[in-house]
Design a binder for these strands. Structure first.
Lengths: 178, 178
DNA sequence: AGGTCTCCCGAATGAAATTCGGTGCAGACG
DNA sequence: CGTCTGCACCGAATTTCATTCGGGAGACCT
């Protein structure tokens, strides 16, 4: 378990006086239980959630709202089968920029998430600058995506595309970084 | 293949008469609107959802349930800030297996999602067999993760770790493949 | 036409979310 | 040492919502 009483990173923020996100800097065990439950099923009734974590429904509601207000819970999303929405083929595309200036980074960074079929964008350390997780209708659509959106982008120097055979579930707690 | 069970290509199953998963094989515009809305906010009240997509609440409820039963909506998850739960550092780890036998694949495939901090697992085409998206508490934890869980795994030949500076949101419709 | 199947709606019922006033505890302060 | 203040919590009351059920319209087949 990664319990460590009051959260690894919250500690360094506890001293910060007026951080708007930090009315109560650390999350406690009840918060963690709420997060874990909602990460597994975001639609669990507040009633049931309250009982599961051992507090009153009204308190539970306040906790959940606080977690959202503090940005710890970023939102509630439906998980959708990619194939069912016309994206049966997925790929990881490594992107290297021509120059690592702030302008080029910003340019690509803002454009990438808006490209059609982009599921996730990672700004990477190392020789490749960005990693794009994309879903497409098929091989032709993948080629078109790369040619139309990436290799023609002024900031892009080169790309490398790797097909995904299968995605296996992990702990999908995560929010994207914005 | 990515999840080829029922939804890969609804088209080819449409003619099949009594496929239990296929009372109505394809999704229509209303379904898509429902999916889009719930992907954005899984907790939107059924009432509001119905109005947003232009159908009656009772019908909407039936639609959502059908989408779940057919496996098109895989679940509802809370998106959580990784740093808030003690995982401020993320990385992508490419894993190459010693031999590409079915046994080794199965062995790693079943073990990987259970490793602590694993957020997503991709079975890749190409020279690297798996790609792991992990979240950890810090550099030391990352090293420990690789050493303890990967390089010591009998099926693993080599790994390559790339740090993630930042994750930028995309269309996060997606479910993991199982 | 007639029959059947599917999908849809709207009202009624039961369950849930949400609000609000009050209570107890902890730390600050006189 | 007593008191005051702030905070988190709770439980009942209210409102909003989910869910069920009976019935109707359209498509399709015979």
């Amino acid at each position: 378990m990664l319990s460590c009483k009051s959260t690894v990173s919250a500690g360094i923020l506890e001293g910060v006086p007026n951080n708007p996100q930090n009315r109560r800097a650390s999350i406690d065990d009840v918060d963690r239980a709420i997060i874990r439950t909602l990460a597994g099923n975001a639609r669990v009734p507040n009633n049931a959630l309250a009982e599961a974590v051992g507090i009153a429904p009204s308190t539970c509601l306040a906790r959940v709202r606080a977690l959202q207000d503090r940005g710890i819970i970023r939102g509630f999303r439906a998980e959708v089968d990619p194939a069912a929405i016309g994206l049966p083929l997925q790929a990881m595309i490594s992107v290297r920029l021509r120059a690592h200036t702030r302008e080029q980074n910003e340019s690509f960074r803002s454009a990438a998430p808006e490209l059609p079929g982009v599921l996730a964008v990672f700004h990477m350390a190392g020789s490749d600058d960005y990693l794009l997780h994309v879903g497409v209708a098929g091989p032709e659509a993948l080629r078109d995506f790369v040619v139309d959106n990436l290799t023609t982008h002024p900031a892009v120097a080169q790309t490398r595309t790797n097909l995904i055979f299968e995605q296996i579930a992990g702990r999908r707690y995560l929010a994207s970084g914005r």
